[in-house]
Amino acid sequence: MNKARRNPLNNAAMHAILIAYTCVALFPVFVILINSFKTRKAIFREPLALPDADSFSMIGYQTVMEQGDFFLYFQNSFIVTVASLFFVLVFGAMAAFALSEYRFKGNTLMGLYLALGIMIPIRIGTVAILEMMVATGLVNTLWALILVYTAQGLPLAIFILSEFMRQVSADLKDAGRIDGLTEYTIFFRLVLPLVRPAMATVAVFNMIPIWNDLWFPLILAPAEHTKTLTLGSQVFIGQFVTDWNAVLSALSMAILPVMILYVIFSRQLIRGITSGAVK
């Protein structure tokens, strides 16, 4: 190895840049979190100080708990995200299997058709989606969101999963066929377990945009009983703009679940991105 690659000065400069940028990335989150635990006076007097015995206060969280139904919002977000991911993964894997395993007329065309949605955002069709949801009575139900997110997630899921399914050994599937397994058993018992890592990648990719989406909850399900956490915190904060304690606490409570998910899934997420799934 040559010298330039382990020059200590270079090394220090690299760490300096990374540390500086890490601070920039984490600073706003840090400020919000520490101030959510302080009294109103302390928030304004010493915004960058950690809460101490004097300035500690949970008043913001009390307001949030009394005024907003954050548990319901959280539950809605959770149901929508999990259900959408489930359908994206199951339907996506089935279609990916059909495209990668069987040769049939129109296979390539079908693949192209399903890939269209990778580049074209589903939001363009919002006007007609709303009209359809109103006509079918699905507006202000979680099903409206689940359907939209499933349709939105499918194209990329099918694309990634069929790449992976092509790598599953043909011998294995043929052995299954000789043993008299049906195509369904081959798919569910043999192939699905083998592409589990790719499924996890697809799930993590889809999870964050679904959880964080504001557009479709705002348009398709703005009713109080179907608000997602993102929409709920948007509305709540809008109402309490002048109550800084409540706003900061609401923001912290919206950050918390995402951070927990991130800590759990970050390895999977980073491995998924760096495995070249979207190269």
Partner: peptide, 25 residues
């Protein structure tokens, strides 16, 4: 038929909720 069964759910949801509304818009 198994090809149809494998493709149908994805193609239906994708067509009904994404492609059709897109062109309808």
């Amino acid at each position: 038929w198994h090809i149809v069964v494998f493709l149908a759910p994805a193609v239906l949801v994708y067509t009904a909720v994404m492609i059709f509304p897109l062109f309808n818009t």
